[in-house]
């Protein structure tokens, strides 16, 4: 078993970890903005890790060159997609979800 297969295994394992966490975050957070953080960022990283693993396993040079070009364009296109969704959400005027702060409750209790 070659070294590059071990490296590809590491890349694919990190892709699975990040991807699973992204899916969990997409269902766990209560607000589109936070879902966008979890899904968008972790999804981008998982996809990028898949690209790195595929680059390590690429059978010939033509495949490897195309994967490198795809990686560079992906670094531009993925944040742009997130930005389009973010601007759409912001322009529809959705309020930002805020967690109930424990600090405020303790402040009131101290006042009492």
């Amino acid at each position: 078993m070659a070294v590059r297969e071990w490296l590809a295994l590491v890349a694919f394992a990190s892709a699975i970890i990040f991807g699973t966490a992204g899916m969990i975050g997409m269902f766990r957070f209560p607000d589109p903005y936070a879902r966008m953080h979890a899904g968008g960022l972790l999804g981008t990283t998982a996809t990028f890790s898949v690209f790195i693993g595929s680059l390590l396993l690429a059978p010939d040079r033509a495949t490897a060159a195309r994967i490198v070009i795809i990686m560079i364009f992906f670094l531009i296109s993925a944040p742009t997609g997130s930005y389009i969704v973010g601007r759409f959400t912001w322009e529809t005027g959705l309020p930002v979800w805020k967690p109930k702060k424990r600090r405020n409750i303790t402040d009131k209790e101290q006042e009492k």
């Binding site: 990040f18 969990i24 766990r28 972790l42 967690p99």
Partner: peptide
């Protein structure tokens, strides 16, 4: 690329602990 991985680790922790303060 280094930023991408660093931020993903931070995000991973936030997903499992749920400690966020959005603004």
């Amino acid at each position: 690329i280094a930023f991408l991985y660093q931020s993903s680790v931070m995000m991973l922790r936030a997903v499992f602990t749920g400690e966020v303060s959005p603004r």
